[in-house]
């Protein structure tokens, strides 16, 4: 079909977490501009399987930009060149015929490579487990409309809650810092009345778990905000700092 592109891919291949990896070059011929980036990789993989070569491993699931499973650093950019877009929603029309595309995994000590482009982001789960919840059980809760929440607060909390936990913030940050992710959750609960009883204990527990996982510190370059597919704002990080210092120096 006309308008199709021939591309060269340089893909990071790594057998497992303990193996050392390297870049391998593949041809991606006849790529339609209507394909998503992951569909382009599907096509390459199908070609590899036909040749009995090991297909490229990458994480993906919903392909609608909401599950947060897809990742990839494409030509140096987590989730590729478009703003507010996950890799699964990136289309090949963002590239040109003849391009060479370098594809790497998210790189961070806290995100060890599982295989090829897939990394282990369970550190994020452990941070959430440390305090990313309201300690209430099922049942016995008040009627939903007994808690009135000003719309501006609800909307702002929602903005923080849209984080999909993909880890692009860590991948983009020169320090591999997870603060945008952690602060989004801390912020959501810090703003809502439901989060108040555990507000400071939560902030402390989540920050300390984040440190334990080996993420770097924030140097306020705001690369995370620029690359966040859900456009989570760095004001969340400021709020987290406030919550944490409050927890440590005043409320603790």
């Amino acid at each position: 079909m006309s308008g199709n592109m021939n591309l060269t891919l340089k893909v990071w291949r790594q057998k497992n977490s303990s193996a050392s990896g390297k870049f391998v070059t593949y041809k991606a011929p006849e790529i339609s501009p209507d394909m998503s980036f992951l569909e382009m990789l599907d096509v390459v993989n199908e070609g590899l399987v036909k040749k009995s070569e090991d297909p490229i491993q990458f994480d993906h699931d919903c392909r609608e930009g909401i599950c947060g499973m897809c990742s990839l650093v494409i030509n140096g950019e987590p989730h590729g060149p478009k703003r507010a877009t996950t890799t699964c929603q990136l289309h090949m029309r963002s590239f040109n015929d003849g391009d060479t595309i370098v594809i790497e995994p998210f790189r961070a000590a806290a995100f060890p490579v599982v295989k090829d482009l897939a990394v282990n982001r369970s550190a994020f789960d452990r941070i959430q487990q440390a305090g990313g919840y309201v300690s209430i059980g099922t049942g016995g809760v008040p009627d939903a409309n007994e808690i009135a929440i000003p719309k501006v607060i609800a909307d702002e909390a929602f903005n923080s809650a849209t984080c999909i936990g993909c880890g692009a913030c860590v991948a983009a940050c020169k320090n591999a810092s997870a603060m945008l992710f952690v602060s989004a959750k801390i912020s959501q609960y810090a703003m809502l009345p439901q989060g108040q009883p555990e507000r400071y204990a939560r902030a402390e527990a989540m920050v300390l778990q984040m440190d334990e996982e080996g993420f770097g510190g924030c140097t306020n370059t705001y690369a995370c905000e620029a690359k966040c597919p859900k456009e989570i704002k760095v004001t969340n990080i400021a709020r987290m700092n406030r919550e944490f210092f409050n927890a440590e120096f005043i409320k603790g």
């Binding site: 309201v134 808690i147 609800a154 989060g195």
Partner: peptide, 8 residues
């Protein structure tokens, strides 16, 4: 239940 959990 969901509101009590902080679902926005």
């Amino acid at each position: 239940q969901c509101v009590a959990q902080g679902v926005p």
